[in-house]
């Protein structure tokens, strides 16, 4: 067994010109992105904790789940728009599905079932993921502007500060993800992504899904929980 492994390794080396030995056989970039994602857990943990700690502590409205009264005595409804955010949540969730299909298209390039079919069209899936990300950002922009019209800015109260910062941080992550996806799309258009490049799509996908997973937590903890 041991000799067989060494033999194979030799051949592998002869056929690739620039091969890097790694002690685990795993790609450096993939190890790094997972460490990065681990770190991001703590980043969002700090943001989410703060949001939850400040829940119900705002001294003035607008408020997320409660009916509130302005100093002039007007009565207002809770500010969060659940139907709209449910729609944007749906878009982001589905973008994860599209993302795995983009990765599968690149990984399986040239395999039966992937040649000439939609399933094998990585450009389509990458573009679709980026588009869905952009759609999510559009929903967020709509939400933010309508909140501002209703009198909630990042300065208004503790809810405004923690809400805009938390969701804004997430939005910034989505934006970075969209730019990353567009970069991959550009590479795919320019020279075509091959199974050898799957790692490039893989690490982007891991990041993308993580951003999705964070939204799953935010959607429940910020929008639904009372």
């Amino acid at each position: 067994m041991a000799t067989a492994v060494t033999h194979e390794a030799h051949e592998a080396h002869d056929t690739h010109e620039h091969v890097h030995y790694t002690s685990t056989g795993l790609d450096n970039r993939k190890v790094a992105i997972w460490a990065f994602i681990g770190s991001e857990c703590m980043l969002f943990a700090s943001l989410i904790s703060t949001y939850l700690i400040y829940k119900g502590r705002s001294r003035v409205g607008p408020l997320p789940h409660e009916i509130w009264t302005s100093p002039s005595g007007q009565i207002f409804q809770p500010i969060l728009n659940i139907p709209v955010t449910s729609a944007s949540t749906f878009v982001l969730l589905m973008s994860s599905l599209v993302m795995v299909l983009a990765l599968a298209a690149v990984e399986n390039r040239g395999k039966p079932g992937y040649v000439g079919t939609l399933l094998g069209n990585s450009k389509f899936w990458l573009a679709a993921t980026a588009l869905m990300g952009a759609t999510f950002l559009g929903f967020q922009a709509y939400e933010f502007t309508s909140f501002v019209h209703e009198g909630l800015t990042i300065k208004t109260n503790l809810f405004g500060s923690s809400f805009f910062t938390l969701t804004g941080f997430h939005g910034a992550h989505v934006t970075a993800g969209v730019l990353w996806l567009l970069t991959l799309l550009a590479i795919d258009i320019k020279r075509g992504l091959t199974p050898k490049d799957a790692i490039l799509v893989d690490i982007c996908a891991l990041y993308w899904h993580f951003v999705d997973v964070v939204w799953i937590a935010i959607f429940t903890l910020v929008y639904l929980i009372k």
Partner: peptide
Amino acid sequence: MSDHHAPGAAAA
């Protein structure tokens, strides 16, 4: 610098 097929990565 495509290092995803490391030599000896056979086992992995």
